[in-house]
Design a protein around this nucleic acid. Structure first.
Length: 462
DNA sequence: TCTGGGGTCCTGAAGCCC
DNA sequence: TCTGGGGCTTCAGGACCC
């Protein structure tokens, strides 16, 4: 999809169409997730600190991401891709590789192009958004083609033309060459893909190490036989928070780690997983990052176990000077737990112990180890927290109908009343605790009756 | 006022076992 | 009994990606 989040916001908010829109973290330490093409003109791009973006484009609309909304659009697009082939490899919400050959959807350039054209039309019809398609014989080249196709286009790389196309491009074009590797190569006098080829494989391995060197050299020769892999299994689950202000208080740091551990386990359980290795991540005041990990004897999805491990790991970290970020993760994933194994062992023991025990109640009835579902966050918290209005999020007013939060502060919230199907709407301001105003679900970008639904976009590689 | 959040993969050091 | 080395695992950090 082209500038996915920003495009989705423009589609649902008529007053923002054709305007600079920046979606991302709004806080003092936020970064840009996506900038609309209108905002990019001012030099705003993803991963840029939002504060810097505000300096470059002070008049742009700054919105917080609506994850669920984007996800629903993404599902629609992925559904369309699934009709082309059983081999669809999502890279993110807005991007996926599709193996057209595996699906029998295309066998040569001509048929592939037709599929691409039709797909773009369908994405548009179902989601109301534009996506770009890159067609090529490998994942790397399809990706490059899709970059060239953006926005709202289709590019096909003809077999036999790959090397000539790649040669003059920057080394940064190649997957796996980021800022650090790019700098490294540049210092060695290598700036283009052609220069990688000239340097030779041995030199690349010397510069970048074995795995990376061989890999980058192969990519430079346009050799990429990585298969399209459907449904990858997750290897880790983690949550992290960056704080608006560094935390110094050790007690508070401990409490935050506990909270993160709970959130992480909730996610773990929702995915039906458990894990063996607990990881604590700490980013200090000076942005230096360290991780500490501990591997248990078996996988767990027990909040108490993860919480305790995280607390132990925190004990080994010096936080004087303050921390800006804390994170808790679990890796070494499995779909059973240590507790399951104990349960199995106990069952086996029971079975062997053919004897009596007719109706003895379980000893550890209070344990709550078993099938415990996701514990929702304390209800007391929901009740106490005052309502927060996030810029860009959907609301409904009893009298004025659906709209979205344009901004809030000083006890007021400003709402623009418009929908994806209306013209630009009017703005009104309310008190933040106005009982007539409430959060609402996003409206689909394409009206439901026509068989559509929400909206979605994805950059699609084939 | 720099620098999010969720991931993956690789490397190197260190410890352990054989 | 000592030493060396291969192979495996764990841990920490870094690079990269969207």
């Amino acid at each position: 999809m082209d500038a996915f989040f920003a495009q989705a916001e423009q589609a649902s908010k008529p007053s923002l169409r054709g305007k600079a829109v920046v979606v991302g973290g709004i806080g003092p330490r936020g970064v840009v997730a996506t900038a609309s093409y209108e905002a990019r003109v001012f030099g705003v791009h993803s991963a840029m600190p939002t504060a810097q973006a505000r300096r470059l484009a002070p008049h742009a609309a700054y919105l917080t991401p609506r994850g669920g909304f984007y996800r629903s659009i993404s599902e629609q697009v992925m559904g369309l891709l699934g009709q082309l082939s059983p081999l669809v490899e999502p890279l993110s919400l807005d991007e996926a590789f599709v193996d057209l050959e595996a699906g029998g959807a295309a066998s040569d350039s001509t048929s592939a192009r037709l599929v691409g054209v039709r797909l773009r039309r369908e994405i548009r019809a179902v989601t109301g958004l534009t996506g770009s398609v890159g067609l090529a014989g490998s994942k790397m080249l399809a990706k490059i083609a899709s970059e060239q196709a953006k926005p709202d286009g289709l590019v096909l790389i003809e077999p036999g033309t790959e090397r000539a196309l790649l040669g003059p491009m920057s080394v940064r074009t190649l997957p796996g060459v980021g800022p650090a590797t790019g700098d490294h190569l540049r210092r060695a006098g290598i700036a283009t893909v052609d220069e990688i080829v000239e340097a030779g494989e041995d030199e690349l391995v010397r510069l970048l190490g074995k795995a990376h060197g061989h890999g980058v050299y192969a990519m430079a020769l346009a050799r990429d036989d990585r298969p399209v892999v459907a449904e990858r299994e997750a290897k880790s689950v983690s949550v992290e928070d960056t704080y608006d202000v560094d935390i110094h208080d050790r007690t508070r740091i401990g409490l935050e780690v506990q909270r993160l551990a709970e959130r992480c386990v909730r996610r773990l359980r929702r995915a039906g997983l458990s894990g063996r290795t607990i990881v604590l991540k700490v980013r200090r005041y000076d942005f230096s990052t360290l991780t500490r990990s501990e591997t248990l004897r078996g996988p767990t999805d027990d909040v108490a176990v993860v919480r305790e491990a995280a607390a132990r790991l925190l004990d080994s970290v010096d936080t004087t000077g303050g921390v800006r970020l804390l994170g808790v993760g679990v890796s070494g994933l499995a779909d059973y737990t240590q507790e399951d194994l104990f349960a199995q062992a106990a069952e086996a023991a029971d079975a062997a112990r053919v004897a009596e025990a007719a109706e003895t109640p379980p000893q550890n009835a209070g344990g709550g180890e078993g099938t415990g579902e996701d514990r929702p966050p304390g209800p007391e918290r929901a009740a106490l927290v005052e309502r927060r209005w996030y810029p860009g999020h959907d609301v409904r007013h009893a009298a004025y109908g659906p709209g979205w939060v344009q901004g809030s502060g000083l006890g007021r919230v400003t709402v623009r009343f418009e929908t994806p199907y209306s013209g630009p709407g009017r703005v009104r301001t309310f008190r933040v605790d106005d009982p007539d105003l409430e959060p609402a679900e996003p409206l689909p970008l394409v009206p439901a009756p026509s068989g559509g639904g929400g909206a979605a976009v994805d950059r699609t590689h084939a």
